[in-house]
Simulated assay, not measured.
Amino acid sequence: MTDTQKTRVAVLVGSLRADSVNRKLAELLRDEAATDVVLDIVEGLDRLPFYNEDIDGENAPAAAVAVRERVALADRVLAVTPEYNGTLPAVLNNAIDWLSRPYGAGAISGKPFAVIGTTPTPYGGKWAHEDAARSAGIAGAKVVADATVSHPAGEGDVLVDRDARAKLHDAIAKLVAFAPETTAA
């Protein structure tokens, strides 16, 4: 099977920390992806300036153009993120802002979107995942609600726990299988 026949999933990692468990999780899921799926970790979120309509348009920053192009090439979008202070990290929110423009036609528009991740909190990032899904939905993505997995670190190491990884792989399978409803014209 060639890469053009595979479902491409753009992966947005919400943590910039070099030793981030969520980055390791994204890499592990990429390496264990089904043979008909390519998980493409989108690099460069750390180089995106804060979204500002004054610098967007024909001369948008190169980092924004590169991230938009990577996501535009994907069939699906997956956010893998921790939770910071009860919400999504600024880097992920900023990426969604860039991907939402131009409004109604941004790189994320119409794409199935899911959120997974882990945090050391008892809730596993639930609020961040809800906020990321809400923001992506407003930006035009088709949120796959039953593909959200918020894994509390207290329930085991997500990188080695078989049950936790099975839930995450199931979430990716649901994202890949999701068929957005189309409206007849």
Rank of each mutant, 00 (worst) to 15 (best):
M1Q: 04
T2K: 15
D3M: 09
T4H: 14
K6V: 01
K6D: 02
R8Y: 00
V9P: 10
V9G: 10
A10C: 09
V11G: 07
V11W: 09
G14I: 05
A18E: 07
V21Q: 15
R23F: 04
K24R: 14
L25H: 04
L25D: 06
A26Q: 00
A26S: 01
L28R: 13
L28S: 11
L28C: 04
L29F: 10
R30Y: 01
D31A: 14
V38L: 15
V38P: 02
V38R: 15
V38W: 08
L39Y: 02
D40M: 03
I41T: 05
V42H: 04
G44Q: 11
L45R: 07
L45Y: 08
P49C: 05
D54F: 03
D54C: 04
D54K: 10
G57L: 13
E58M: 04
P61T: 03
A62R: 12
V65Q: 15
E69T: 08
V71F: 13
A74C: 11
D75W: 14
R76G: 00
L78V: 11
A79W: 11
A79M: 08
V80D: 13
T81C: 05
E83R: 01
L88E: 15
L88R: 01
L88S: 12
A90Y: 13
A90V: 12
V91C: 10
N93D: 15
N93M: 14
L99Q: 09
L99W: 11
P102D: 06
P102G: 06
Y103Q: 07
G106A: 09
A107S: 14
I108G: 06
I108C: 06
S109W: 11
S109G: 00
G110H: 03
P112Y: 02
T118M: 01
T119Y: 10
P120I: 10
P120H: 03
T121Q: 13
T121A: 15
G124D: 11
K126V: 12
A128S: 15
D131Y: 13
A133F: 00
A133L: 03
R134T: 12
A136Q: 05
G140H: 10
G140Q: 12
A141F: 08
K142I: 12
V144R: 10
A145N: 11
A147G: 05
A147H: 05
A147L: 07
T148P: 02
V149N: 00
S150L: 02
H151K: 01
E155N: 14
L159K: 04
V160D: 14
D163T: 09
K167Y: 05
L168C: 04
L168Q: 02
D170N: 13
I172K: 08
A173H: 07
A179C: 01
A179R: 15
P180A: 12
E181C: 00
T182R: 14
A184F: 11
A184Q: 11
